[in-house]
């Protein structure tokens, strides 16, 4: 028992015997996976292989049909719905394929929203710091519709790291970008995860990304 407990607390991510089934379709089986603190991983798989499903399971958005999921020593699906939401807000930063910000709020307000929903106080200094590190400080009062695709992606990265999460998860962050921007976004993700000492998992089927990571978890 003690041994099991030890194995769990040593990892940022630990999944064991995780599977998920949508309706009557065949169940997706995920190989056990352990990720250490501050590691940078690539989650590889073709479209339909279950990348997004696994990411949703890891971020507490989708309860798996079976298996255990531990993030930062916490058994995710043992938490109540409210605690799970709060845990996600404070410990996990998520970046989606398409940058999506709340249109009615300015860039700074979008970041404030992330602080607020995570149950933290508004910290203007931190907002300034993150926006500056992503070279977006000059756009703090702009609205999402005024920004280019590349700028929007930077802001979603800013939003993901604003609360200094221990785990940073990106779902296909480069698939809709050209080579130059894809490289830039990847560099930013790695830089920000290092800056915030966060574990990074990037899910992709984009071959351009492969060489940027040493650690890979592949889905069949």
């Amino acid at each position: 028992m003690l041994f099991l407990w030890n194995t769990v607390i040593d990892y940022m991510i630990s999944i064991s015997s995780v599977s998920h089934q949508y309706g009557n379709s065949p169940a997706l089986q995920f190989a056990d996976w352990q990720v250490n603190d501050a590691e940078q991983w690539l989650l590889l798989g073709q479209s339909g292989s279950g990348k997004t499903t696994l990411l949703h399971i890891l971020t507490g958005l989708l309860k798996p049909s079976g298996g255990k999921v531990h993030i930062n020593n916490t058994d995710l699906y043992q938490l109540t719905s409210k605690k799970l939401d709060a845990f996600r807000g404070q410990h996990i930063g998520i970046i989606f394929q398409k940058p999506h910000l709340i249109k009615s709020l300015s860039i700074a307000e979008n970041l404030m929203l992330a602080q607020r929903f995570a149950g933290l106080r508004t910290n203007q200094k931190r907002i300034e710091e993150v926006l500056t590190s992503l070279d977006m400080a000059h756009k703090r009062n702009a609205y999402p519709q005024e920004l280019s695709q590349g700028q929007l992606q930077r802001v979603t990265i800013a939003r993901a790291v604003i609360n200094k999460p221990t785990l940073l998860i990106a779902d296909e962050p480069t698939s809709s970008l050209d080579d130059k921007n894809a490289e830039a976004v990847l560099a930013l993700l790695k830089q920000q995860s290092e800056l915030n000492q966060a574990t990074l998992v990037v899910a992709t089927h984009d071959k351009r990304v492969k060489d940027a990571f040493n650690l890979t978890y592949s889905l069949a």
């Binding site: 996600r88 807000g89 999506h100 910000l101 709340i102 929203l113």
Partner: peptide
């Protein structure tokens, strides 16, 4: 719908 889903990923509870 997507806005609200994003808010949930940021930590907003269903009640919120």
């Amino acid at each position: 719908r997507y806005d609200l889903a994003i808010m949930r990923t940021l930590g907003a509870s269903k009640t919120k």
